[in-house]
Design a protein around this nucleic acid. Structure first.
Length: 420
RNA sequence: GUGGAUGUAGCUCAGUUGGUCAGAGCACCAGAUUGUGGCUCUGGGGGUCGUGGGUUCGAGUCCCAUCAUCCACCCCA
């Protein structure tokens, strides 16, 4: 029996891989434009990092982590997200002592043991940015503007940006209590999930999609109304900055994030029509995370984008890499293959994309192959050429063929490629 | 983790109530006057019908299990 890729994983093959290159290029370029530089962290970390950083009450930590014991009895976990690793690296290298803010982006695979479906995989890819060391609402806005800029560059127009504030540790705690006492009397009307979690994480009840839960808690106190003055001001400033910079969003009282580390600003981006998993990105401020990771009280904010989901939304993508090669060397008689290889190497060393056949194809089949590779020119090499010391260059578009000496071939090809 | 649908050549799919049912299109390969492409025509290779059991004289077609994909729930990116 043959071995297949594990459940929830998949291969990225050409030509799809060029879609990924295209997406990655836009992500990297836009991040750089905003002053974010790449950080690469390990794919696995100590399990404890995620338990503490992401939060023990979260689904991610509770049931979705790929955790294993290595040969030295360490408990390690394949990273389910990128922010905790960034916070860890910031602390480990004491970068909070240096020039602030620290602005990073990351891109790579994440792992979550979840039930696969369209737009949801067990190994999936995220692009994310993190900014540490500033509590300014303007950097909240910067991060959101960056996110929107990426979507714009990708030509994704129908996204919906939801925004909320979940408050600081003080007002959030107060709000939590308020919410629990509001829910407790009606807890019997909640769905089983909510009934079991409202004590530990009452905010989750707010974004439960069960209609019964919504009705049960109708008229609930919003987070917004419970924000302390400072948090309210912060949120107002973020909103004003977004307004000033032409970013449209929707304030959403029900938006709470699934990870424990979020504080204040929280946001999510949805693109309708790409399946049930329509959230392509989300993020927010996490002012307690660095401290939780053993560092000083350094604020942070960031977001992550699900790359698979972006690609789902990017269906109208044109194959950019259809032309694989510019020049094809067709060797008409096998005995001259060594000469063909030398010409090929010369072309490549001159920076010209060139290729040849290696499967013993007939001249006709080689022409067909050259056509499929998108070659603009074909260099023909047969008995006539070898005996009379020249090369035949065929222009695939005009079908014109000219004789060119070996010495001039590179220059000739370069000129031809320039005009075509 | 719960419920449901599906699983036939590389790809998209046909395959009636179980008995020439192993097929089509695309892709691939080879020919159509001997050194030449994109169109057309002809021919060809390729599948133990997801896997493993079972029922039957006989199963791609029925039953069970298992794996995988997809949908809803859940969750998030």
């Amino acid at each position: 029996m043959q071995v297949k890729a594990p459940r929830g994983t998949y291969d990225i093959l050409p030509p799809d891989s060029s879609k990924w290159h295209y997406l990655e290029k836009i992500l990297r370029e836009t991040a750089a434009l905003f002053g974010y530089r790449e950080i690469r962290t390990p794919v696995f970390e100590h399990t404890e990092l995620f338990e503490r950083g992401v939060g023990e009450s979260t689904d991610i930590v509770n049931k979705e982590m790929y955790t294993f014991i290595d040969k030295s009895e360490r408990s390690l976990t394949l990273r389910p997200e990128g922010t905790a690793s960034c916070a860890r690296a910031l602390v480990e290298h004491s970068l909070y002592n240096g020039l602030l803010p620290v602005k990073w982006y990351y891109i790579g695979p994440m792992f979550r043991y979840d039930r696969p479906e369209t737009g949801r995989f067990r190994q999936f890819h995220q692009f994310g940015v993190e900014a540490f060391g500033s509590n300014s609402p303007y950097i909240d806005a910067e991060v959101i503007i960056l996110l929107v800029e990426i979507l714009n560059k990708l030509g994704l127009k129908n996204y919906e940006l939801h925004l909320n504030s979940v408050g600081c540790s003080v007002c959030r705690k107060e709000y939590r209590e308020k919410l629990i006492s509001y829910i407790t009397p009606v807890k019997d009307r909640l769905c089983p999930d909510c009934r079991s979690r409202y004590q530990k994480n009452p905010l989750r009840v707010l974004d439960c999609k069960n209609e019964a839960c919504h009705q049960a808690i109708a008229g609930y106190p919003t987070i917004y109304d419970s924000l302390c003055d400072e948090c309210r001001e912060h949120y107002a400033s973020v909103r004003k900055a977004l307004d000033d910079n032409g970013v449209s969003y929707k304030h959403d009282d029900n938006l709470v994030r699934g990870l424990d580390y979020y504080t204040n600003t929280a946001f999510e981006v949805h693109i309708p029509g790409i399946g049930a998993q329509s959230a392509v990105g989300g993020g927010g401020r996490y002012n307690g995370l660095v401290k939780e990771c053993g560092g000083p009280d350094v604020p942070g904010i960031g977001f992550a984008l699900g790359m698979e989901r972006l690609l789902l939304a990017l269906d109208n993508f044109d194959d950019l890499n259809k032309r694989m090669t510019d020049v094809f060397v067709a060797v008409m008689e096998g005995q001259y293959e060594d000469i063909g290889v030398k010409i090929l190497t010369d072309l490549r060393r001159a920076g010209i994309r060139a290729d040849k056949d290696y499967t013993g194809k007939s001249p006709k089949a080689q022409m067909k192959y050259a056509d499929k590779l998108g070659a603009k020119l074909v260099i023909l090499l047969g008995e006539d050429e070898v005996k009379n010391r020249f090369l035949t260059v065929r222009n695939m578009k005009t079908k014109e063929q000219v004789k060119v000496g070996h010495d001039e071939i590179i220059d000739f090809i370069k000129r031809e490629l320039e005009v075509s």
